[in-house]
Design a protein around this nucleic acid. Sequence first.
DNA 1: CAGTGGTCTAGACCACTGG
DNA 2: CAGTGGTCTAGACCACTGG
Lengths: 235, 235
Amino acid sequence: MVNAIKIPQFEVIKQYVRGHINSGRWAVGARISSENELAVSFSVSRMTARRALQELAQEGLLTRAPGLGSFVAEPVLAKPSLEIHNIVAIAQSKGTYSCQVLSLEQIPADAELADLLRFEIDQSVYLARFLHFDGSKAVQWQEIYVNPKVAPAFLKQNFTKVVPDEYLEWIAPSGHVHHQVGAVLARPSQRRALGLTEDSQTACLQITRVCSRGSIVASLSKLVHPASLYQLGTT
Amino acid sequence: MVNAIKIPQFEVIKQYVRGHINSGRWAVGARISSENELAVSFSVSRMTARRALQELAQEGLLTRAPGLGSFVAEPVLAKPSLEIHNIVAIAQSKGTYSCQVLSLEQIPADAELADLLRFEIDQSVYLARFLHFDGSKAVQWQEIYVNPKVAPAFLKQNFTKVVPDEYLEWIAPSGHVHHQVGAVLARPSQRRALGLTEDSQTACLQITRVCSRGSIVASLSKLVHPASLYQLGTT
DNA sequence: CAGTGGTCTAGACCACTGG
DNA sequence: CAGTGGTCTAGACCACTGG
């Protein structure tokens, strides 16, 4: 006996059921054997058969209903999703991160901004622009609007030592973060900052990030990345 | 007694443990009560206490190890992810979808394409270009390379009646789908097809999608969307 | 060694569904 | 009504970890 790894009984039953579903022997919507039937077939207790079906239900292969039975679930093609990897965090972990402060100011919110931040019009907002580097390469242009009530000392920070987003997360952990991804053309100032020369390079991925807690918006960032440097991927 | 909904015992224990973790009374990494201890404390059987801890472990709040115990897990901030919503499927469900075939051809794979498709160089590949409409508006430009071995009859389909991707999924269900999102500038032909006039509108979101099964690549699509029409979002 | 979590049993009671 | 899944019990044996 080489490598006699013990396979749990509930796993055997799961494989059996999975096999019948994947091969199509049990059609979508069809009722499958009950816990009791499986328990008898496999000579196990009901709790063991139950565990198999339960886990398959949690994996989305089965639907179960008291009084009715277990049914082959509609095959839900795993909805593809993209991880947003933070290019700044990556540079930091490599130790090659640096940040250039382009501007720090306090402005009154115009109508559009007030709407986005759930502010009153003309309420004062911090506006900062940063250029984030990985080594000598500018990888992200950031424009961030900050709620002064959440981070009153924001403009006084030394952003060559503290990453803006980390500072905000530190003093006011955000409950919800909303992301939106789109494509934009680099504006001339952005093009210069990011070192984009040819017209063909000016396509940028823009991530709009809103950090909020409850009904209070803490910050809104626009992150612009040269398309040549930044891609979102999945499998 | 109004609305005396029965709360299962394992749920009570889960709430108890969750409370101690969220409030910080049990620090990250700390060992928590064992199954046996909880069973005694709550006057339940070990299987019930076990279920509570097991489910919390699956939710990522606990780490468990035989012989050692259960520990408060590192709080993993839910990594933000983007759903890729299929603009074509949306138009279909609205009943306003239509498709225009721009080209259908068979070409030999050049070096780059052969690499992407895991093909031999000069092996024959189907290449098709489509323009997908939602009503009278062109919402997606698609360029798709198809493996003739997977879908030999691909070029003979009537794509005003069948969506290319659905046809492929139908005759050869793909095991893995890989997506990549980037920003591109619309090429002149794409700009014309998508009805983009001003230069400022030519920023496009491009999704590269590779469908494969095992080591065989079935198709590779480049989907180009005007940035004004297509955004990816999350919460 | 005593304690941990992982698997498993043979029972039990329950609310619920269909015929 | 008999059957279903949901909850629960009081036992059991196991491989594993630390002291």
